[in-house]
Design a protein around this nucleic acid. Sequence first.
DNA 1: CGTGGTCTTGACCATTTGGTCAAAAAGAAA
DNA 2: TTTCTTTTTGACCAAATGGTCAAGACCACG
Lengths: 203, 203
Amino acid sequence: MATTKPLTRIQEKNRALVLDAALEVFSREGFRGATLDAIAREAGLSKPNLLYYFPSKEEIHITLLEGLVDTWLDPLRALDEDGDPQEELRAYVRRKLQMSRDFPRESRLFAQEIVQGAPRIERGLSTDLKTLVDAKASVIARWQKAGRLAPVDPHHLIFSIWSLTQHYADFEVQVRAVLGPDRDPLTEAEAFLDTLFTRLLAP
Amino acid sequence: MATTKPLTRIQEKNRALVLDAALEVFSREGFRGATLDAIAREAGLSKPNLLYYFPSKEEIHITLLEGLVDTWLDPLRALDEDGDPQEELRAYVRRKLQMSRDFPRESRLFAQEIVQGAPRIERGLSTDLKTLVDAKASVIARWQKAGRLAPVDPHHLIFSIWSLTQHYADFEVQVRAVLGPDRDPLTEAEAFLDTLFTRLLAP
DNA sequence: CGTGGTCTTGACCATTTGGTCAAAAAGAAA
DNA sequence: TTTCTTTTTGACCAAATGGTCAAGACCACG
């Protein structure tokens, strides 16, 4: 097992610097489009210096994605079976939308990875992700069985939340192009999605 | 203006061959990840031969995207003001979902382009796309004013259709990973989305 | 046939890019 | 200061990649 040696202060700082720069570049250019030079420049380090902190471009990418999946699932984890079903789900939508607002780069990085067949995170997909989603789908199913929620397929309900919220981060350029420069997509989306899910979830 | 010379039969055939191969490779690997060698191999041509039909990698990509935007908007164009509002919109959803089933590569290619900021189709976005969407949004608004549709924001309604339907093509790997191998995502989606929009659109 | 255009390709090239290395420049510890 | 470790970098390298070119193969048609 990896006997993770404690990182020095400089290592701590510079690894974070690299990861942030890499997030910026990877999310903008994709894995293949991102160059080590570009990441190094963005991080304010020389290329060899960058490779002193990470052994390879791929390693940076993997590190980034691994940290991501967890954060990504947090809002779903917070779904509480003991709460009010409709309010719990609407709150989930709001949390996801908030992530599109606060972490668009992360959302796009993740989206690009999935669109390309998730070559670097298959593991996390079929295990961690599926496990959690199945568990929460069961919660939703129980709510429905108790008549507290409309009987729509729980898995697809979750997909719909993902797609509707992430759309505003991943396809931001398109949304802005269509709405024009004077409208605020995310604020409007919040109201729209609240209406949508209120109508969808009522028993 | 481009005095488009008539293409020979061989040109016709091989250009189509190249475009199909390019669609396959671009949609799988992204623009930067796709190599001319890979496209040539997929097309069954030599690299110089490929470049005999298209002057550059970028030109192939652009040709592909231009042909795409139109096809992409067809289902929306078909939205008919004189039809039944709810049925028209549900039919639009079905058509878009059908495209996710029939043309997932096209969907993914388009998605990747947008996620990366649409560097190669900005023109089409702020003109063609916006124009058409604004027009159809007006149609929806009139339907709503007549009390034939729930008063939800027309633009976001259209976004929701895009995101929900394209999700099944663009994030197919994720959807399959979560649903497991025995479920058919698209068939289930059709039923789910029909329910969703029935509930959302009722006045 | 032959001839003029179309199509195809092997060899080649310049640039980009991921990654290495040895040696210099900081730090830390004494 | 001295010494030992950690950081930093300029110079390089090999492979990959987009693209060129001249010459040959193929083809239509008078």
